[in-house]
Design a binder for these strands. Structure first.
Lengths: 114, 114
DNA sequence: CTGTATCCAGCCGGATACTG
DNA sequence: CAGTATCCGGCTGGATACAG
């Protein structure tokens, strides 16, 4: 989690404070791909640590980008899904992914709408 | 500077490894605004440390997003400017800024074309 | 399996001083 | 002013164990 900008009014700096760190972005990516369970995020190739994942989900929920829901097939466990506010970050992730695809050798597309 | 993704092929993860950390993004923002001198970056409201700034500029140059040039009015000092590759990140910064403007109270637009 | 809790090494970066 | 160098406190996050 990035350090908070000291009273910056820059929308870039403030947005980055909210979800601009690497792990948060990758969790958002997984949410866009349709993942919702703790274990699904854990399976991603970047291998996030369980405490880090819990931390990022908590922050995203606190920022209202993500909300939890009761999964009927998995009682006792939370499901995580994007809110409308969270979904509105999609153009950002798409812009970064498109740049990566165009500029970094060996990268492969993901983030199919689900 | 973020830790490198261990052989990830995700264009998002790889792009974030390149310029996805807070300070790097803010330096890019300043470049888009037209700043080119070390001292100009230092004056930004987020107050980057001089060693951190030097590090980020070096990384950006190494990644070919930025190049140095000889400033005729400031001999003995490097000027920094975006390369074409660096300029191509503009849609990313714009997407984040637009999100911040729309979703975070108290933020104000910048990144006027210069 | 879904998280929570600790431990702790390593890195990030702020402060500061210093050189050309 | 541009940039480098060093110190070092604090946070990040990997590893691991554990609970429900």
């Amino acid at each position: 989690m990035p350090a908070k900008s000291k009273r910056s009014v820059c929308p870039l700096a403030c947005a980055l404070d909210l979800f601009g760190d690497r792990w948060t972005m990758l969790v958002l990516r997984d949410l866009f791909v349709g993942k919702s369970q703790f274990g699904e995020f854990m399976k991603s190739p970047e291998h996030i640590a369980s405490n880090t994942l819990a931390d990022r989900l908590e922050r995203l929920v606190a920022a209202r980008l993500v909300e939890t829901f009761r999964s009927e097939e998995r009682p006792g466990a939370d499901g995580y899904r994007l809110t409308a506010k969270g979904s509105s970050t999609r153009p950002i992730l798409e812009a970064i992914m498109n740049w990566g695809l165009a500029n970094i050798r060996g990268t492969e597309a993901r983030l199919q709408p689900k």
